[in-house]
Design a protein around this nucleic acid. Structure first.
Length: 413
RNA sequence: GUGGCUAUGGUGAAGGGGUCUAACACACAUGACUGUGACUCAUGCAUCCGUGGGUUCAAAUCCCACUAGCCACCCCA
């Protein structure tokens, strides 16, 4: 038997309803804030991700599904959405009409990692991006919308953490300050952090090792090294969040994995997903659009992991409930049931029936299993006098109804 | 790429060398109720315990390998 690929999952009926609910909620909430959907391809030129995410990030170095296609092009199955959306924004010159674009997307992403709880090789993200606004009101609005979305789903547990990563002005200065701090206590750090000291010293700040936590307890914080512009931006973002009534906390040790982030970064974190605490995350990327060959337009956005959101929603039921089940006895009645079913469905009534000519008892059981609201019973008597028995399943009361779709629809609606 | 744990039916699982042609429960099917569900009762539903090899008179039960899944590290949504 051929099985699916490791880390690539089927989403079966029963679970897919939860996904549809998440997606529909995103469309509704994001629409409220004026975002339009954009659909971009799953495959892009490999260079797009190297340039945007960063050549030396883990994603690009070891996690991408990259291959050479039959036209000898180096292509990659997208590991995230922002790069593609910005590529489309630039390629179609959306900025020419209006540099301000508010876009959202949803779909599968691919990363070659070892699967574990809340992490899969094909996973799904719903993301949103705003271009063309530097004002921190937009930072606050993006975060407010994200929290609004979770509130609509009834999820209050994930909490918002924010940080600022500075800009190309102040970050290098901070990076050096941190390195010189770490240099003093390299011997106290774990092997991973020793390795990261050169490549990505900021990572030491959120290392899980107790020794590293202790050693970096008094490490300099990015927030204390922001330039005037970044400092003002962060302060204003906080003020606007308070104005919007969006609760948050500051996590000055938050580190993001993609190179393009500047200034505001954030995560929606939960303690309910094992090692995967981030349900949604994002940040500002003021240099990305220019880096990709577009105009000097700022941007900010986030992505959430749909699998993780679905996990948080738990086993909540989204079962459908048919309006009517038709139980028919005998070939003639079955034919009539089929005619009625087709007519009723055209009238907007959801109908189920049995196709195997089973006993009435068996059909009643099936009707009950479907949790249908009504059952229509048709046998030879009913066929003879043109009326059938309509049973309301919740109360058990029965009535007579004409064998006519419109008449039945009137009773069932 | 590294480490730990697990692997019995449609599902959750019990059983840790012979009494296992594998408990129990759910689900499913049929019937008791000859045309009425949800309750009740009865009956049926794994010749077989991830795959391959080994130990043994005897293995679902012990050993080895492989494979798969899960969780964790790295990293990330």
């Amino acid at each position: 038997m051929t099985t699916g690929i490791k880390g690539f999952n089927d989403i079966l009926p029963g679970e897919v309803e939860r996904w549809q609910h998440i997606e529909a909620t995103a469309r509704r909430v994001f629409g409220l804030y004026g975002y339009a959907e954009i659909r971009v391809p799953i495959l892009e030129k490999t260079e797009l991700f190297c340039r945007s995410i960063g050549d030396t990030t883990d994603i690009v170095e070891k996690e991408m599904y990259s291959f050479v296609d039959k036209g000898e092009n180096a292509v990659t199955m997208r590991p995230e959405g922002t790069a593609s959306v910005m590529r489309a924004y630039i390629e179609h010159k959306l900025y020419a009409q209006d540099p301000v674009a508010k876009l959202y997307y949803m779909g599968p992403m691919f990363r070659y990692e070892r699967p574990q709880k809340g992490r899969y090789r094909q996973f799904h993200q719903i993301g949103a991006e705003v271009t063309g606004v530097t004002d921190p009101k937009v930072d606050a609005q993006v975060l407010t919308m994200l929290c609004h979305f979770f509130a609509e789903l009834g999820l209050t547990e994930p909490t918002l953490q924010i940080n600022s990563l500075g800009c190309p002005e102040c970050r290098p200065v901070y990076r050096e300050a941190l390195k010189s701090f770490l240099r003093e206590r390299l011997d106290q750090l774990c092997d991973d952090c020793k390795r990261r000291y050169e490549t990505n010293p900021l990572r030491a700040l959120d290392c899980k090792s107790a020794h590293c936590k202790e050693a970096t307890a008094d490490a300099p914080a990015m927030l204390d090294h922001l330039c005037a512009g970044c400092d003002d931006h962060f302060a204003a973002t906080r003020r606007h969040l308070e104005r919007a009534g969006t609760p948050y906390s500051i996590n000055n040790r938050m580190v993001r994995g993609l190179d393009y982030y500047t200034r505001t970064t954030f995560e929606l974190v939960t303690g309910l997903l094992g090692a995967q605490s981030a349900v949604a995350a994002g940040g500002r990327y003021d240099g990305l659009i220019a880096d990709l060959g577009g105009p000097a337009v700022p941007g900010i956005g986030f992505a959430m992991g749909v699998e993780r959101v679905a996990l948080l929603l738990g086993q909540q039921e989204f079962a459908r409930r048919p309006d009517l089940f038709i139980a028919a006895l005998g070939a003639e009645a079955q034919d009539e049931a089929f005619r009625l079913m087709c007519g009723l469905q055209r009238l907007g009534v959801s109908v189920e029936m049995d196709y195997e000519g089973k006993s009435l008892k068996s059909q009643m059981r099936r009707s009950d299993k479907f949790n249908s609201r009504f059952t229509l019973i048709i046998g030879s008597d009913e066929m003879a006098n043109g009326r059938a028995t309509l049973k309301a399943m919740d109360s058990g009361t029965q009535s007579d109804v004409l064998l006519d779709p419109a008449a039945i629809a009137g009773e069932v609606k």
